[in-house]
Amino acid sequence: MIWMTWRQFRNPALVTGALLLVLLAGLALTWAQVTDLAAQAGFTGCQGDACAGAAETFLDSLRPRMAYELHLAAIVTLILLPVLLGIFWGAPLVARELETGTYRMVFSQSVGRGRWLLVKLLIGGAAAALGAGLLSLMLTRWAQPIDAASADRLNPLVFGARGIVPVGYAALAFVAGVTAGLLLRRTLTAMVVTLLVVAGLQLAGPLVVRPWLADPATTTVPLDVDGQLGISMSMDTKEIRVHVEPDLRGAWVLSNTTVTSTGAEFTGPADTTQCGPEAPRDRETCPGWLKAQNLSQELTYVPGSRFWALQWREFGVLIALTLGLSWFSLWWIRRRLT
């Protein structure tokens, strides 16, 4: 069964492997570039307040280089990889056999259907996990100075291309494709459905599941009106909204609301003699007026230190779903496929 699985799986596996190898080679070749730039900017081994400036210098010096483009390419690849694995590895796996009738040949050999599918799921799932895992592992190590400097590992786009979460998405997408093919029995239909389902999972993951898994912290701090202020106001209704970037390095901010002392969202009304285009010295008077309003900033956020805990939780959920779907498709092929 292993030989047969390998024989049928050979071409798509080699194509995917070659593509991944190109990226891995690119990362290996630019490895020194990234560490050198970090060292030149004084970011490597920096202490205290010097770090912020050094990080800025490092990231600026990286931007025109190849490594920067490669970083984006690797992130995009890791995000697209599950969809591609689901469509081109998973969906045709059973659907093509059902469509061309070859299932009647292979099920007539001395191998039960359950074992046939189990071996295919194991080999395909392991290969999908291995491919995504290798690229993610390499990228996570390679991008360590970048992540330390930009402190946005929890950014949904970056988070999904670091650590072990890509392994979970790859395995789940592959099994989802197999299950779609098994249920729909048409390769093309299964591919389209897999695309929709996997894309839906990849959106639902960061938007719905991850905030829930992360168990975010909530804090209320006095509004800092002396720094960068984002103000929008309407002259007719005198409604005013204030937005201040929170000072939470490395955190994933889920919500950021400016509230009054009673806890309600602050919307004005604004004093147009102090703030806005009609106030003669808006830039000087407005922060003072805002300060007098006794405003606070209510933040819901996931601290940067939770990165690995969150990685493991999401990975756990994805693997549980993968195992559940695998069990379902094994049950279906044995009991329900006719």
Binding site: M1, I2, W3, M4, R7, V106, Q109, S110, V111
Partner: peptide
């Protein structure tokens, strides 16, 4: 070869 692998 498939037959040989899948049938004892």
């Amino acid at each position: 070869r498939m037959g040989a692998h899948l049938n004892p």
